[in-house]
């Protein structure tokens, strides 16, 4: 017989006028190998079918199921109940717009971010159908992939006090996404152009080094090193450009 788990879950349906946020308590028998995907699915199917949460891939690849699990931002699909106490509190991720219960709108947030920062490969060259691909060092490909593999779940943003203090700050996920393009030799933007996007208080110089991002990243991305890399690259450009400008002036 498994433990009896108690779930205190944040409930709020913003589309019902006059409704107020509340905490609803559920009980569930723990089963072997149970994770929060299994648990929440059962709660919905067996106890309250209106309970809203987001799962898609249930294997930590799609980034849908970030939530505060006993206060900490985690992916629900890769959190075993056996690693938690019998009392489990579930809250939606902060920062993002609440859609209902545990469901938040990370999609719109990241879409706006990508549009704002131009998070796609900028190239002016047309594709030649019959030409062989351009060569690339495998090491470069792997370094790009290391930044590329962020799944934009939003846990790093929820874990960053600076994001809570300053809504325009794009956070580790936003900065790391741009690192991916800076590392890519196929992208034609110069460092100066990245500086325009990132070289401010809302970009890399808004980071206070709290490291909540790295400590709470479900994919174990090396965020500290990626952020330091971009900070140095942009600082070098920022300083040298201001000198040349003074020289010319």
């Amino acid at each position: 017989m498994g433990r009896r788990l108690t779930f205190d879950i944040f409930r709020y349906n913003p589309s019902v006028p006059g409704s107020t946020p509340r905490i609803q308590t559920f009980q569930l028998e723990e089963t072997p190998g149970m994770n929060l995907f299994v648990a929440l699915t059962r709660l919905r199917e067996e106890q309250d079918p209106s309970l809203k949460f987001d799962f898609v891939c249930r294997m930590a690849l799609c980034g849908s199921c970030g939530m505060l699990i006993n206060g900490r931002p985690r992916l629900a699909c890769k959190t075993f109940t056996r690693d938690l106490p019998a009392q489990i509190n579930l809250f939606p991720l902060p920062v993002f717009k609440l859609l209902g219960d545990l469901s938040v709108d990370t999609g719109t947030w990241f879409r706006n971010l990508a549009l704002k920062t131009g998070a796609w490969l900028h190239t002016s060259r047309a594709f030649e159908h019959d030409a062989r691909e351009e060569r690339m060092d495998n090491e470069t490909a792997l370094r790009i992939y290391e930044a590329e593999r962020c799944i934009e779940c939003g846990c790093c943003l929820a874990a960053c006090a600076k994001v809570h203090l300053q809504k325009e700050f794009i956070g580790a996920a936003g900065i790391n996404r741009l690192v991916r393009f800076m590392l890519d030799p196929r992208d034609e933007r110069g460092v100066a152009q990245y500086f325009e996007v990132l070289g401010s208080e809302n970009g890399i110089y808004g980071c206070m080094g709290l490291m909540g991002c790295e400590d709470n990243c479900p994919k174990d991305l090396p965020l500290q090193l990626q952020l330091a890399y971009i900070r140095r690259r942009l600082a070098a450009t920022g300083v040298s450009r201001s000198q040349t400008r003074q020289g010319k002036g």
Binding site: L68, R72, P73, A159, A161, H164, G212, N216
Partner: peptide, 11 residues
């Protein structure tokens, strides 16, 4: 609130 909820040493 962030620091308390996260119980995060560096914050």
């Amino acid at each position: 609130r962030v620091a308390r909820k996260l119980r995060h040493a560096d914050t």
